[in-house]
Computed example of a mutant assay.
Amino acid sequence: MLIRLPLILVAGFLLAINVHAQVLTDSIKLKEVSIVDKQRPVSRTSISVMLSEKQLQQTKGATLAETIKEIPGVSILKTGSTISKPVIEGMHGNRILILNNGIRLEAQQWGLEHAPEIDPFLASRIHVIKGAESVRYGAEAIGGVIIVEPPSLPNSSVISGGVNLIGASNGRSGITSGMLNGGLKSLPGFGWRLQGTLKRSGNVRSAKYYLGNTGVHELNYSAALGYNTSKALYEIYYSRFGTELGVLYSAHVGTKEDIDARIAIGSPLENYGFTYNITAPRQKVLHDLFKAKAHYDLINGQSLDITYGFQKNQRKEYDFRRGIEKHCL
């Protein structure tokens, strides 16, 4: 027994080594498997909102800021009833980019009393982009982007259009806006559009008193021509925005004591009646925009777009000093 036991252990150990070596020498090779898929990229860092045609109809007669204020994250910065600036996620002015018919609105937007020079009656679509993705439009779009798009030019010779008549008892305001578009039967693919807006409003009234110097006189118009072929598109566009508006007297205070006094009284120190007259402090703004665009379809689904834009912004501000008007800008 003392001699057989070591022999049995050695034999078992050698058998185990042979079996283990045989298992290690066997191998299975699998062919390469590739899985390819395409997914449309979805951004989770931006919010894009398009106002519907019904929403635009409900806000006819309002300013651009008032038109988009119902969008979540969008508010307005107002000076009286005549000046309103859009605020997106707490940012406004030069931190918000406004595209008017594909052209960046280059205007004087740094002041709290500088409203965008755009007639909302021209727009058929208004698109608001918020979030990090808006910076792809440039450094000016850090707060967001507002895209104002007019209706497409018609391709048929049928003449069509529309007229908007809006009135309001407060301020005794009246707004007339019309648009007419069509083409030429002798030149298929040619289209044209004419548009204009006339607005007049006097001092608006609160529950107990009139707000002095809150009238508005506004005249805007635009024209567009376009020619569309199977492989090319040509377009010329011109618009003018012109407004004269009063700045609320009560919004102009000189010292902290003036503010405290008006808060204590609960109303402006001055009493004003109704009038259409606009006096200092007031603004007179003219903004001209010209655009020329050409689009060409190339081979292999490629295309070429050439766009030229020209803008001229004239802003005059008149302040009130010791009973006389003073030209400030």
Rank of each mutant, 00 (worst) to 15 (best):
Y234Q: 01
G242T: 11
I263Q: 09
S230T: 01
E244C: 02
S250T: 11
K231T: 12
Y227P: 01
A264F: 00
A232I: 05
R262M: 12
Y238H: 06
A264E: 05
Y237K: 07
I263E: 14
V253G: 13
Y249D: 04
K231L: 12
E244V: 00
S239Y: 11
F241V: 02
Y227G: 02
Y237G: 07
V247M: 08
K256P: 14
Y234R: 01
Y237E: 10
R240S: 12
L248Y: 01
E235K: 12
I263P: 06
G246S: 11
G254L: 12
A232D: 03
N228R: 07
I265D: 13
G266K: 00
L233K: 11
E257Y: 07
F241R: 01
D260E: 09
I236G: 08
A251H: 04
D258E: 08
I265G: 10
E244D: 07
S250P: 10
G246H: 03
Y237V: 08
I259F: 08
V247G: 03
I263T: 11
E257C: 05
I259C: 13
G266W: 01
V253W: 14
G242W: 07
R240P: 14
T255S: 09
E235G: 06
Y237T: 06
H252K: 08
Y234V: 03
I263L: 13
A261K: 14
G266C: 09
V253K: 14
D258F: 07
Y237L: 12
A251F: 02
I259D: 11
G254H: 06
A232T: 06
S239R: 15
R262I: 14
I259L: 11
I263V: 12
L245A: 10
T229Y: 03
L233Q: 09
G266M: 00
L248G: 02
S239I: 15
I236D: 07
L233C: 01
L233A: 05
A264L: 01
E257D: 07
D260T: 02
A261C: 09
R262Q: 15
V253E: 09
D258A: 04
F241D: 06
I265N: 14
E257N: 06
Y249Q: 04
H252Q: 03
L245F: 03
I236E: 03
T243I: 05
H252L: 06
V247I: 11
I265K: 08
E244I: 01
R262L: 14
K256G: 15
H252G: 04
L233W: 14
I265V: 05
T255L: 10
R240C: 14
T229W: 02
I259W: 11
Y238F: 11
L245D: 03
G254M: 09
I263S: 05
L245K: 02
L233F: 13
G254V: 09
G254N: 06
I263W: 00
F241T: 01
E244T: 02
G266N: 08
G242Y: 07
R262P: 09
R240T: 15
K231Y: 14
S250M: 13
N228T: 10
T243L: 09
R240N: 13
R262A: 15
Y249P: 01
G242R: 14
I259R: 08
G246F: 01
Y249A: 05
S239T: 13
S230V: 00
D258K: 03
A232L: 06
E235P: 05
Y249W: 00
Y238D: 00
T243Q: 08
D260L: 09
T255D: 10
G266Y: 11
A251K: 04
T255N: 08
